[in-house]
Design a protein around this nucleic acid. Structure first.
Length: 487
DNA sequence: TTTTGAGTTGTTCGA
DNA sequence: GTCGAACAACTCAAA
């Protein structure tokens, strides 16, 4: 019996740049036909937010890694640029593919684009199938007893955990059969043609030193964290001076690893009983916050633009912000922990989680700058800039978000610094001009006696800025502004 | 429908 | 120095 020659399948990679636990890829390989793997840099379809600089840098290297992993198992990655709908429909036609598969996304513009493409493909008799791969729980799978979306984290996460997801992540395929690229498919580009990397100036040196981009790097990072970080996660995760967080977020952002792989590994790391359950729960809850953010984004699509709580529409944000915003960007506020955090961000494309809250609170509450300006800066500079987590977290700090911080929670940058970086190790790593100042004054140099400052080689206002706002006065001003909202 | 308890991450003040 | 209360009132989720 002669079987008909199987038709090609197209795997459309997006925010899922991995081979393991990749249901879309797995389904394509189960199909028997040759596989065409593509990535499309789409900067023209309506509503898509352009990637920030750090994300573009990451994407370049992540695609490079994916292409290399695919080629090792007989596959290939083709990179294209343009309108996703036009490219995919044309590609399906030219290659004779009868199926296109991808992993779901959850932003409004992305959903609109994907469903349009599904319709277009169907019209030319091509099956389009989407898969869950970026989340543990689809946003529509979870709802309150009243039938609506959750707006508070704890009940959301309780409901999610009750739903459970015990299945093991999929193994990476070992072999595949790539469809050769034909000229009739159009132009497959070189990665460099996407122009994702910075040229002049090349600001990515610190990023290169900090990260091992790609699926192999993600897996290495996870196993390092399970070995060295997880056992003390609950107590140490807030310490800016320790390496206790997982640092998996950019890998997750680009789907180099799936939340399911992380959850599975964290749970099984506790099998031997050497890791206290509270550490595992605490870590898994962080994955839960990512899920919650996507839940919010799906149900409130303009999360990035609009206050989740509309009463914040009347908030008296500062009118002229250029000067202070610039000092905040550059890490020149005169508050050491703020400046260290902002410089860590600029140099490495990441920032310690605790410090993110401190710098965000400072920008919003001390400088009274609209949270959207902070969201934009993080979007441009963070390697892990995530459409859901970034917006949800900024709103959370502002108090305008779901389950948000109460108005009176105004982080004191001095106390926070002393609590979570007691010896000033973190500050000194990123603010070298304070490197000779002792722990007693490291978070409040303006209070240090003159002789101590002189001995440390510090002249306030010259070698390091004096505080750009007075903490107590800024706090009072913010409290008054937030109180004005309630009336 | 009404009621009840709860809600990631803090700071300051006064006893 | 330590500790508990105040800081507003609201909204959510579930019974």
């Amino acid at each position: 019996m002669v079987r008909p020659h199987p038709k090609p399948v197209i795997v459309w990679f997006r925010d899922d740049l991995r081979l393991a636990d990749q249901p879309a890829l797995a389904s394509a390989l189960a199909h028997d036909g040759p596989v065409l793997c593509v990535y499309i840099l789409d900067e023209v379809s309506p509503g898509l937010r352009p990637l920030g600089g750090a994300s573009r840098w990451w994407l370049h290297h992540s695609l490079e890694q994916l292409a290399s992993s695919l080629s090792k198992i007989g596959g290939r990655l083709d990179v294209l640029t343009g309108a996703s709908d036009q490219i995919l429909t044309a590609l399906a036609k030219a290659s004779g593919a009868d199926k296109v598969v991808w992993t779901r996304r959850y932003g409004a513009a992305e959903i609109a684009l994907d469903s349009k493409i599904k319709t277009l493909l169907k019209q030319q008799d091509v099956t389009a199938e989407s898969f869950k791969g970026q989340l543990l729980f689809e946003p529509w799978e979870l709802q309150t007893k009243a039938g609506g979306p959750f707006k508070v984290f704890t009940p959301f996460w309780r409901a999610a955990l009750a739903l459970g997801d015990g299945s093991a992540p999929l193994k990476a395929p070992k072999k595949m059969n790539a469809l050769p690229w034909d000229k009739s498919y159009g132009k497959s580009l070189k990665l460099a043609d996407l122009k994702l990397l910075p040229t002049k100036p090349d600001w990515a040196r610190g990023l290169r030193q900090t990260w091992q981009v790609g699926e192999a790097g993600a897996i290495a990072r996870l196993s390092d964290f399970l070995k060295n970080g997880l056992a003390h996660y609950a107590e140490e995760r807030d310490r800016a001076d320790r390496d206790s967080t997982s640092r998996l977020s950019p890998h997750l952002r680009f789907g180099e690893i799936s939340p399911k792989q992380i959850l599975w590994a964290a749970r099984h790391a506790g099998d031997a009983g050497s890791i206290a359950q509270r550490n595992i729960d605490k870590f898994i809850a962080e994955i839960g916050w990512r899920e919650f953010s996507y839940h919010l984004l799906y149900h409130f699509p303009d999360l990035r633009q609009a206050n989740f709580q509309p009463r914040f529409d009347h908030f008296p944000w500062a009118k002229s912000t250029k000067k202070n915003l610039d000092l905040w960007h550059k890490g020149q506020t005169g508050y050491p922990v703020i400046d260290a955090g902002m410089r860590e961000l600029w140099q490495t494309g990441t920032m310690h989680n605790r410090v993110r809250m401190i710098v965000a609170s400072f920008m919003i509450k001390h400088l009274m700058i609209d949270w959207r300006r902070g969201e934009e800066w993080f979007w441009d500079t963070l390697c892990d800039a995530d459409p859901a987590s970034n917006a949800a977290s900024w709103q959370w700090v502002a108090g305008s978000g779901a389950d948000a911080a109460p108005y009176f929670r105004i982080f004191n940058p001095i106390i926070q610094g002393e609590k979570f970086d007691p010896d000033g190790i973190y500050v000194k790593r990123f603010v070298p001009e304070l490197s000779r100042l002792g722990a007693k004054w490291i978070h409040r140099p303006w209070e240090a006696p003159d002789n101590i400052l002189a001995a440390a080689g510090i002249t306030l206002g010259k070698t390091y800025p004096a505080p750009i706002v007075d903490h107590a006065a800024a706090r009072e001003r913010a409290l008054a502004a937030f109180a004005s909202l309630s009336q």
